[in-house]
Design a protein around this nucleic acid. Sequence first.
RNA 1: UCCGGAGUGGUCCAACGGCAAGGAUGCGCGGCUUUGAACCGCGACGGUGGAGGUUCGAGUCCUUCCUCCGGAACCA
Length: 766
Amino acid sequence: MSEGPSPNASDFIREMIRADVASKKHDGAVVTRFPPEPNGYLHIGHAKSICLNFGAAEENGGRCHLRFDDTNPSTEDIEYVESIQRDVRWLGFDWGEHLYYASDYYERLYMLGEKLIELGRAYVCDLTEDEFANDYRGTITEHGKDSPYRARSKDENLDLFRRMRAGEFADGAKVLRARIDMTSPNMKMRDPPLYRIKHAHHYRTGDAWCLYPLYDFAHCLSDSFEGITHSLCTMEFESARELYDWVVAATEVPHVPRQTEFARLNLSYTVMSKRKLLKLVKDGVVAGWDDPRMPTISGMRRRGYTPEAIRAFCKRIGVAKNLSTVDLALLEHTVRDDLNERAPRVLAVLRPLKVVVESWRDGEVDVLDAPYWPHDVPKEGTRPLPFTRELFIDRDDFAEEPPKGFKRLAPGREVRLRHAYVVRCTQVIKDAQGEIVELRCTHDASSRGGAPADGRKIDGTIQWVSATHATPLEVRLYDRLFTTESPGEGDRDFMEDLNPAALTSVSALGEASLANARHGEHYQLERTGFFVVDPDTTEGRIVLNRTVALKDAWARAQASSAGASPKVDAAARPKAQKTPAQAPRVVEELAPRARAWVDTHAIAEDDARTLAAHEALARVFDEALAASADARAVAGLLVNEILGELRSRDTDAPPFGGAEVAELVVLAGDGTLSRSQVKDVLGHMFAGEGAPRAIVEARGLRQIASEDALAPVVDRVLADNADAVARLRGGNANVLGALVGMVMKATGGKANAKVVRELVQARVAG
RNA sequence: UCCGGAGUGGUCCAACGGCAAGGAUGCGCGGCUUUGAACCGCGACGGUGGAGGUUCGAGUCCUUCCUCCGGAACCA
């Protein structure tokens, strides 16, 4: 199987982890976890997460835990625990000793609940769910207000919490809430519930508890208990991160894990939510979680997908934060790519049409030795393939009136029977209804093996089976479960988009060797598709599942020329309007402080607005003005350079003040420093190396602006890059930038880029 | 509407502020072929959501607008 484009997968998460390892964060340890809730079967979306968590850990010498996030007794079941373990293992990942259950932490978590109460960071609230939602939580745009129970004493809270555990209250009568901030813009922070009462039987803890922690409390603490360093989850948990951090800090647990979110996988023509998958199972639309039409791991396994193919797919799709829907065709390609080198080739006929080779003596059997593998798969092995007078070929491989370009069998025409003989159709026999029921052929005795002795070229090759040696097969042809790219798009019920033809079962005939097919084996039925032997197979009844069809250029061409159902070419679709309306720029009134800056210092309004919006920058700006610097230049530097730097360092205020910025502006203004040196110095200032002048002196920074000094460097670079110069002369203006960049690099950023640019232009023109 | 996130060929993912925005898939064409597969080659398809700004130079930094997604479960 060919490797993906990037053998060493890299994405923003792996980069972050590598950086953490390099900086010895957590002593360079990498511990991740895959935390499913045992309330459903794993699907291809989980596979993405599994590959990321186990993969990133392994690549960095770390480990990945399998943890069941089982904090909701009413939906969870041991069946799911077992299927999940089976699926993760099947995918090829190993958690070693590190199998955990949130339910094993119940006691520990409970104690932290008490601790939170003692620290005054949580309280027992008697509001019903509706009361809280309607009267206290507020809305997305309005603040909430404090629960009347928020001010309960520690003792009362503790007493109540213990009695909650003891089972004194009914479900929903009370919850334990975090005491955070009912006015937070993040709804998750408005005193979220941490514990709820649920008199329910838990599949692992039985009836030991009637008090169960909620995700936001249990998950982050479980991560902390296990020493998880990188807690990777999907984007919908993004606004929960603030609460995650709060709980970890508030409970004062020693280990602090870090949550990072990535986009979940969506696949075209499939649904992925557990709710929808469960409905398909419950409604009997599919035969179960492992139905080959399901995007579950177990369904794909039964369909014949391999772990290697799924892992290769996960590698190809990458990891990012974009909302994305991967084309199912990519998954299918990856599966074919994997199976191509894994599945031996055999012959089978799905829609049998009888063929009598009249020139073949009745009763004679020629056992051919047929290779299992095509010439480009480096594997060896053959099987005996009996050839007899009566055969079957596929109905699609014969046409009474062949269309243009048809390379298969037709009256009077020749075709090669794969691995066997070239035959010519001499007669077409029909029944009373005019239906073709049989073909009469003659064979070319010189063509045993497929090549006629006279060397004439035979265009078509088709599959066939001996009528007297055929193995009956039940072949299940699977197709995509939905007919539309986005099932249930808009207001439509996704069930309306179900593809009734997602499963077609046919009685087919396979070659003799297929009689020995064993459960789990992969085969390619030549010219048809990849198949796997289904577990329903019994002695004498071989069941084959179509994993994926082969690409079929002929069928595609026929379909599009027929125009009957022209496959909608994605490229032909009108481009989605990305910016529908050209909205006029609405300029808001400047804040008074910003207005004053604009009026008295003539700085740009946009800059003034930006500065006014960032307290730390505003302060630095005022300080710089006090140092009587060029206001416009200071504002520009703060807004365009320093602000971006602050963001990328994830800090609010720079480790230097206005005086230093003013000093830097002077150094830039008087020509001491080149522009790139200014950025360089800024970097050192952020690193806490002191004032600009000191940095400049210590490092001997001085820009080179004279043409005389720069000319030799420019000439050298131009001489070393004659090809680039040629391209520039050829009219590619972008190369100019690259050459300037090379000169800048050659001078260690000391050169004045403007002068360099002019020099390069002059040299190239001259 | 409030908070958060994201916008790069049809799709998915890349691109220390620097050479013609790269790869995969899909699509088309051709070669090869005892699978109309695979393999090989070629091609079309984007100027990076819009508008400003900073810079010698912007997909990348700043501003603003637009669009999409997530968040108001005693679910995870």
